[in-house]
Design a protein around this nucleic acid. Structure first.
Lengths: 213, 213
DNA sequence: ATTTTAACATACATATCTGTTTGTATAATT
DNA sequence: AATTATACAAACAGATATGTATGTTAAAAT
């Protein structure tokens, strides 16, 4: 029974939504298109009409999620004068807020973290990696500005601060996403951020770090 | 053709070794037992003789890898008097050394990070999580001792220092393992550790961290 | 020296999952 | 109003993975 164009778009969206849930629950490679179809209340015929195969569906699912505004940090680097570290910390905190509030992004990131990289969905992972690389580059620029304006203390370089922040955020989110969200992401995350940025800012009494203990 | 007991043990081990490689390359759920058998130079018959199914094989693979000596930190907490933070930092650095040098553990951890948690291999993930929890508890004890002996500065609590270290190590290793080992884990990891522990030790000039910027 | 049994290889039966094809009802087009 | 193309459902065919059953050989056991 032929549907109107709007209705067809609806079923397409419902398929994508169902795929998100099913992929999240069973993993991409364990999930079958029959599972997705059942969850969407259609048959596999509908899926094959709108998408060419499972990989394509996964790609479209990935594309359907509006990914974080990367220019947030970029814009705030332009902002002249005021303490850049505060902006970076705020940006990181905002990221946590968004993550905690957006179940779609939680599921998508969980799926991406868990999915074994088979060759077919390699483009997705590569794209994700490019996004990450741009983020890191932006952070380094921001920290470099902080350094040049005297906000970053001598114990840290822009690169090392970037990595420390990046890895802490990554570990934090992985821990939260992969292990059943057992703690308050925003509260604990922001506390960790406050302490880490405290050590970025803090004027050291003893400037030199001993290489060995 | 019936083999001697030692030979049978050999083929069992070769199956496990092959499974490690195949699971690592294709992901657990994408890998077929035929793949594993071919990689091990046997038929599926041998696999079904030694293991009951793929999940069991994966579990035995996980068990076959001697997991890190957890008591390392524990023992070093007992060591009285000297700077506990140095011991923790050294323990973390040693962990990185071992990880970088042990390809088995690299593959196992990569597999664990990537495998979608289907119900059957949930016991493995739970056990891994228990190991993690014990590690965290040990770290907290160690940092508490550091705090009580005056080595941990006022900006950090034992809990927050534990989490910062834990998440940084987790993010570091995930980044390295999942994204093709694009950097020098030991060098960059230890540098990050040195800076982070520097901020643990560092006597703050301004003791209070501003809540808002 | 037989017999038994362990350690597999081989063959088979079954169950999915996939991709395609065909059918069909209805919206859109003319 | 008749035709056409769309948006699917249903049926089909092929491949693939799994688990089991059976066969086979040589090591142990008797």
């Amino acid at each position: 029974m032929r549907r109107t164009k709007a209705e067809a778009e609806e079923t397409r969206n419902s398929i994508i939504s169902a795929a998100e849930l099913v992929f999240f629950e069973k993993g991409v490679s364990n999930a079958t298109l029959e599972d997705v179809a059942k969850a969407a209340g259609v048959t596999r015929g509908a899926i094959y009409w709108h998408f060419s195969n499972k990989t394509d569906l996964f790609l479209e699912l990935y594309n359907s999620v509006p990914m974080p505004q990367e220019d947030m940090i970029a814009r705030e680097i332009e902002e002249p004068g005021s303490d850049v570290l505060c902006y970076i910390e705020k940006a990181a905190g905002d990221w946590l807020d968004e993550m905690a509030g957006d179940e779609h992004r939680q599921r998508i990131l969980t799926i991406l973290l868990r999915c074994a990289y088979s060759e077919d969905l390699l483009p997705v992972l590569q794209r994700q990696q490019e996004v990450d690389d741009r983020h890191v580059a932006l952070l380094e620029n921001a920290f470099a500005k902080a350094r040049s304006e005297g906000y970053l203390n001598a114990n840290w370089t822009p690169q090392s601060a970037t990595k420390a922040l990046w890895w802490m955020m990554g570990g934090l989110c992985s821990d939260w996403l992969l292990f059943g969200r057992r703690f308050d992401l925003v509260a604990e995350g922001k506390e960790a951020l406050r302490r880490l940025f405290g050590s970025f800012r803090q004027v050291a009494a003893a400037m030199d770090i001993p290489a060995v203990c």
